[in-house]
Design a protein around this nucleic acid. Structure first.
Lengths: 339, 339
DNA sequence: CCCCATCCGACAAACGTTTTAATAGACTCG
DNA sequence: CGAGTCTATTAAAACGTTTGTCGGATGGGG
């Protein structure tokens, strides 16, 4: 392993300037004379010099990386968010360190620890909601944090989110408009804010329709929020006897699983049960019975989050914390279309 | 921003030892006496010390990060691979820097540059195939590279892949067994090796069935490999007149798009056209007509790749380069089930 | 009681960059 | 022609770790 990495000193020697000047060429090119700059740049190319990010971070005190911790990278919703994050970060010259918490507070804490060690410039996180202290500690260390798909808990922080209460209400109001009176809510862990908010929206819609949420809404909580869990939920519902008129699933993966489970059991959708999901992932429109859903601006969510984060990092003086709340949108497809 | 980061020196002072000892507690705990270690660890917790990864990397000459560059993070295939990578890397104490090349050689090169700057321990990459020189340069710098979902090009490198020729042959042999004689191949850019190999497998299957690939196989190349491109492919096929008996799509996203396009136009699947995809993503079984596909051990692919990479990094002496080739598996569902 | 072996821990020198203050020229303008 | 003002560059001091070497203490055996 003859790893003879070229460093700034060699470049400087070869170009006949001081290391400081090379650094200036790299970081504030406008500070250095045209001719010198050209010469240094030529040497950089010739020697194949690549700046040592760690040395740079160590000295400058901040890195060109951001940490991203999501709840489930297997969920297309988060994948889209991640794509938005990656795109903008990369445009701005930042690298993204990815952490998948799988909804576990412990894994989330591990991710945050890694981010802290790496001295990331900032952190984007969809919190699991289990324990907010590790996140507070991070902020105490002076690391900017932007909450993603999660409203701010305090005014001194940035957050981008989509109104999940509205979304839940949209979904259930739509089911009620289709004639449903008893609605099942297939959801994930109650600690996950998205689930709680969507439920709240569902209850609001029921109340507005003059129904008692305690009676008209039946919750089916699952440990995970993927298609497998959805299929299990369908089995539970079937085993429990009479089905609700309609099912609202806290995300599309659950809904697709539920759909599969119901169809396999010979239940007609939407004939016997209307079904609506959440997130409007790409696959929602391609499923056996195309899935009604609630659409969110996912990719945008990721981009805007990075935008806010970098603004906060770069202009700590003038930065105004923002809580951006997008509005979700109902997408009607076959799974709720009553004949 | 009162960012008073605790460093190793403060910990040392507080614990009444030298900085070197604190470092030993962190990196080779067995070298330091039980009592001292306990004392230092207590102070670390008390002061909330977090090691500065950049300083560590700078001095030690290597980091605890790996770079991962994939072709399309929006594709569940790669998401699964990424999940496997992230899981094992995180178990081993490594952070993952994610780069999405979107199939573009230029973006791939940018990713590799970032990895080089970060002095990652190693790189996992599904190459776009456009230009292999940046990758070679990386290897010349002494950075380990493991190819993911791509066979090794030379014996002195590690690679994990799934046999795409076999997969292509499996798919087309299955279509032929169902009675097809003219097969359409909806695919992505020819530079992408997966596409080329799957095509080769398709031709082999045709030849083995006594058909002339030049006549029996019609290629529909698309610029992207997502559902949108698939739908466009369907439109092209419909506009071009008589449809093939069967369609083989180079991945499931294309297949789902094609399926949607065909169904919207009133074409029956599998009645009029049989359809098979590739990757067996979760959603393949949930689509309007459940999708036959070729299954690959995706999550495993990611884990094994990290395993090989870290072995190569940690034991440069004894490490034996391996080219691991998994075998794909045919999954038959409705979309190829002829009455 | 002394010597030797063993084990801990301290010391100090890097690692490659950024950045501040200082310097040397070049130019302007009276 | 000289004082003053820029501008372009340099020198040197950090940043927080790791690591090889070395000294000192401890304990056991002769």
């Amino acid at each position: 392993m003859s790893t003879e990495q070229v460093n700034i000193k060699e470049v400087a020697a070869r170009a006949g300037v001081s290391p400081g000047t090379v650094s200036n060429v790299l970081n504030r090119p406008e500070k250095v004379a045209q001719a010198t700059r050209a010469r240094v740049e030529a040497v950089i190319r010739e020697l194949g010099f690549v700046r040592h990010a760690s040395a740079s971070t160590l000295r400058a005190g901040h890195s060109r990386t951001v940490g991203l911790s999501v709840i489930d990278i297997g969920n297309p919703f988060f994948t889209d968010v991640a794509a938005g994050v990656e795109d903008l970060a990369s445009e701005r010259g930042y690298a993204v360190i990815l952490g998948n918490s799988s909804g576990s507070g412990a894994k989330e804490e591990r991710n945050l620890r890694v981010f802290a060690e790496q001295r990331v410039r900032g952190v984007l996180i969809t919190p699991t909601g289990e324990d907010s202290r590790p996140l507070d500690r991070l902020r105490e260390r002076g690391i900017c944090v932007v909450l993603v798909d999660h409203p701010a808990e305090r005014p001194d922080q940035c957050a981008v989110a989509v109104n999940d209460v509205t979304g839940g209400a949209l979904a259930v109001a739509h089911l009620l408009a289709g004639g449903a009176t008893r609605v099942g809510f297939v959801t994930g862990p109650a600690a996950i804010r998205q689930c709680a908010d969507r439920r709240q929206g569902a209850e609001r819609a029921l109340a507005e329709a003059g129904l008692d949420p305690a009676e008209a809404l039946r919750e089916v909580p699952m440990a995970a929020m993927n298609a497998r869990a959805g299929q299990q939920a369908a089995e539970q519902l079937l085993a429990a006897g009479r089905l609700p008129d309609a099912l609202f699933c806290a995300n599309d993966l659950l809904a697709l699983g539920v759909l599969r489970g119901l169809l396999q059991a010979g239940v007609r959708v939407p004939g016997d049960v209307a079904l609506i999901g959440y997130d409007d992932i790409d696959f929602a429109s391609a499923s056996a019975v195309s899935l009604s859903s609630i659409r969110q601006p996912t990719y945008q969510l990721g981009r805007v989050a990075v935008e806010l984060l970098l603004d906060e990092c770069d202009n700590p003086g003038t930065h105004a914390h923002q809580q951006i709340m997008f509005q979700p949108e109902l997408v009607v497809r076959e799974s709720t279309r009553r004949p």
